[in-house]
């Protein structure tokens, strides 16, 4: 049953990911990416990573909604009614993409993963959250705190980049 759900949600994620680059409407691209990421969240649930699955769905739903708003802001034709082509070097990109898929799949297929395995049973959802909490506030605390500081730095940097410079300051800067 688990194999079926992993296959089903994995396939759904791939199909929607392909749809992202096959439509000339950027609005549809954003929605396809949202569905692809949601399918990934469901795949995480099928892999018994309940917390990560729910987090993925919640984060990506918000992120893709913001992306859709930016699409409408930046595009002359967000609905894609003009059928505008926004791509270049398609052949090279296709070869690189297919080559990467084949190479990574071959590595996945020919590596003896079982030799690296230590345990095959995942704990129940509530146990997992308790263990993850202990990990976050224990051994991985420095990593967790670093992520927090990185978010703060990125917030300041993005605000500095995005805020419009008033005209009188702009003349001094240039």
């Amino acid at each position: 049953m688990q194999t079926f759900f992993i296959g089903f949600f994995g396939l759904a994620a791939i199909v929607f990911a392909v749809a992202v680059f096959r439509t000339s409407s950027m609005m549809r691209s954003a929605l396809a990416l949202l569905f692809s990421q949601t399918a990934l969240g469901a795949l995480f649930l099928a892999l018994q990573a309940e917390f990560l699955g729910v987090l993925q769905i919640m984060m990506m739903a918000t992120e893709m909604s913001i992306m859709a708003i930016f699409m409408v802001m930046f595009m002359m034709d967000p609905g894609g009614l003009g059928g505008m082509d926004m791509s270049h070097q398609k052949r090279l990109s296709m070869i690189a993409g297919l080559g990467a898929v084949m190479l990574v799949s071959a590595i996945a297929a020919y590596t003896r993963w079982q030799e690296l395995a230590s345990l095959s049973q995942a704990a129940a959802a509530d146990e997992q959250i308790r263990h993850l909490g202990r990990e976050l506030l224990g051994r991985s605390m420095l990593v967790f705190e670093t992520a927090g500081i990185t978010i703060l730095t990125a917030m300041i940097a993005t605000t500095a980049v995005a805020v419009k410079v008033p005209a009188e300051n702009a003349s001094h800067e240039s």
Binding site: T3, G10, S36, A100, W113
Partner: peptide, 30 residues
């Protein structure tokens, strides 16, 4: 070899390849 693991890894490989195609072929920043 665990078939579930292989299935998940191939899904990851496919998403990586599609993403790489997108990064190389698209002209719009978004």
């Amino acid at each position: 070899m665990n078939p579930d693991l292989l299935l998940a890894l191939i899904t990851g490989a496919a998403l990586f390849g599609i993403g790489l195609y997108g990064v190389l072929s698209q002209t719009n920043l978004v």
